[in-house]
């Protein structure tokens, strides 16, 4: 018998655990944007070795499964003398991984900005710093917004993998509830629908934000 009661009883705990899912994906996305901007700057640099380094970074973080990256961070950081809490390691890893994808998003968005704008800014004597902070980056963020929202949704789903380093987010919590209640079907389905709800909300918020920013 499918027991809705089990779901209702445990839903508050699952929603409580969603805090960590959101924390990891939102912080990971923010860090991904920051690091991604740096990697993107490297990819667009005139220096060959910077371009190579950026390409290597993107290739590594996109080529190695996140699950393995998480284990690398979890087991290897202590070996080289860095002891950070699992949560910090998880956010950092998710963020570094997201940076690889977001740097490509930013690169595409920057390419979509008409070249004339940078030339015009240079012509009126704008400093490179202002050019980037006032002209290029704001527009790149706007053009890339759908892809960034998409990445955030991917991160919400990817955050389920941090169970392997022992952080009690939705998936880990549902594992322990499932083994305590012997109701895996109900609990895992509830977890799945919780993820679905979070992602639908993010997608909707993204659409609203896009409409708000459109001119």
């Amino acid at each position: 018998m499918f027991s809705f009661q089990t779901i209702f009883d445990n839903l508050p705990v699952l929603i409580g655990a969603a805090r960590y899912t959101l924390l990891i994906s939102v912080l990971g996305c923010a860090q991904g944007l920051l690091v991604g901007a740096v990697v993107c700057a490297g990819a667009l640099s005139r220096r060959v070795w910077l371009r190579r380094a950026a390409a290597l970074y993107v290739s590594f973080f996109r080529g190695v499964p996140l699950l393995i990256q998480l284990l690398v961070a979890f087991y290897l950081l202590p070996v080289i003398g860095i002891n950070v809490p699992a949560l910090v390691a998880a956010v950092l890893t998710v963020g570094l991984c997201a940076a690889a994808y977001l740097s490509e998003v930013l690169r595409g968005a920057l390419n979509a900005i008409p070249r004339g704008q940078a030339e015009a800014a240079a012509a009126i004597g704008m400093a490179p710093r202002d050019l980037w902070l006032r002209i290029l980056l704001p527009q790149a963020l706007k053009i890339g917004l759908p892809a960034i929202i998409n990445e955030l949704i991917l991160l919400v789903k990817a955050s389920s993998l941090v169970t392997v380093v022992g952080i009690v987010e939705i998936t880990r919590m549902s594992q322990s509830i499932a083994s305590a209640t012997y109701r895996p079907l109900e609990i895992y389905l509830a977890a799945a629908f919780l993820y679905l709800a979070i992602n639908l909300v993010i997608a909707q918020a993204g659409r609203l934000l896009e409409r708000r920013l459109a001119y």
């Binding site: 949704i153 998936t171 993820y195």
Partner: peptide, 9 residues
Amino acid sequence: GTPFLVQLF
């Protein structure tokens, strides 16, 4: 909309 891991579970 749901993680592959949860689908597997």
